[in-house]
Amino acid sequence: MTEQEFIPNTYTYTLENGSFKWSSPSNIALVKYWGKKEDQIPENPSISFTLNDCKTITTLSFVKREVSDSFSFDVFLEGQRKDDFKPKIETFFKRIENYLPFLKAYHFTIETSNTFPHSSGIASSASGMSALALCLMSIENVLSDEIITDGFFIKKASFLARLGSGSACRSLEGALIVWGENKTIEESSDLFGVKFPFQVHPDFRNYQDTILLVDKGEKQVSSTVGHSLMHNHPFAQERFKQAHTNLSKLTEILQEGNLDEFVALVESEALTLHAMMMTSMPYFILMKPNTVEIINKIWSFRQETGSKVCFTLDAGANVHVLYPEKETDKVLKFIKNELVAYCQNGHYICDKIGNGAKQL
């Protein structure tokens, strides 16, 4: 599909007011996307597990007004007005106005809450922007006289969400979502996320993700700034090639059920992501000492027990501990006995792989 196919015809119906409510989960990338071109196009493909419990719940209320040259909206997080969120949403609205031409005809009230700490490396922008995109698509679904199929609804919502936060396009469906063109995935696109099209080995179903909250504060460097540093990065082109190769490898691993190769590839991807940050100019380190302690503990535990537990990281200090469902009791005991001490205030979140967003 092309961008043009997401531009609607003139709306036939009108809505004076109303509201829609969606929950949308976060996701955790296995092959990482780092670096983007104009219009939120990724420099390399990525694939992610969709989470189940770490999600954003957004209610979008709207009231018709005289069409203006400006957007009109208020934003609330956990019941508190968040004017500092407005510039990002203003930018988002400017990017998507061509695809949702009703945006300046309404005043919007955006009320959102997370089931996890905001700005702590659990991709709150992914779940937040995807939930908002779904609410906006619900409005268009009523305004349009064209029949919007469920498939097109999700595809356009993913397309819109990408323009707010790149990884948001991977949060609408589950359990595995691919974003970015790759020869291994025939339907893959730079414009939106698509479901992993192949049969997944039983060992990778119901996968568990326990998130160790090493640092619940604001990140030192935003993802937007981090992505921009890839433009002149000396290792960028090799990294983009590596991501394509790793996605092809992971496609086979997920079908064959090779847990050892999964562990090696996923952990390598996580460390490569942070290596790119540490070798950019300016350089930065988002891992904390306790992040490294946890990684070493996981390596020791795996060597001693033969467990298939592994870690991955987003662009932050928190550690996602990934493991097959059949190892849940053993791994959670290990986490409680040895890893909780490295979490801020002992906090961690037990999550698992989910099936995507839901209208509430």
Rank of each mutant, 00 (worst) to 15 (best):
D150Q: 10
K249G: 02
G79R: 01
T251C: 10
N44S: 11
V142P: 01
I177R: 00
E78R: 11
S300K: 13
T149Q: 09
I89N: 07
S228Y: 10
T305F: 09
R81F: 06
K82Y: 12
E111Q: 10
E304W: 03
K326C: 12
L160A: 13
S24Y: 05
P8A: 15
M281H: 13
I211E: 05
V214D: 02
N206E: 11
R302F: 08
P282N: 13
S26N: 11
S26C: 07
Y323H: 15
M1D: 15
D83Q: 12
T12I: 11
K94M: 14
A341N: 09
D84F: 07
Q237K: 12
D39E: 13
T305Q: 12
A168W: 01
P42I: 03
F153K: 02
F62G: 04
S228V: 10
Y11A: 08
S72M: 02
T272A: 11
D209R: 03
G121N: 03
T115L: 11
Y323I: 08
G151D: 14
T328D: 15
I177C: 00
P45D: 01
G35K: 05
L360D: 12
V266E: 04
F198N: 06
I41C: 14
F92N: 00
D209Y: 04
S48Y: 00
Q40M: 09
Q4K: 12
K88S: 09
F71L: 15
D74F: 02
Y33M: 13
N17C: 08
C350Q: 15
E261I: 01
E3G: 08
M287E: 10
V309G: 03
L60P: 05
T328G: 06
M287D: 03
K64S: 13
F85P: 04
C350T: 14
D83L: 11
L60I: 13
A264M: 14
V266S: 09
M287Y: 12
V214A: 00
L360Y: 10
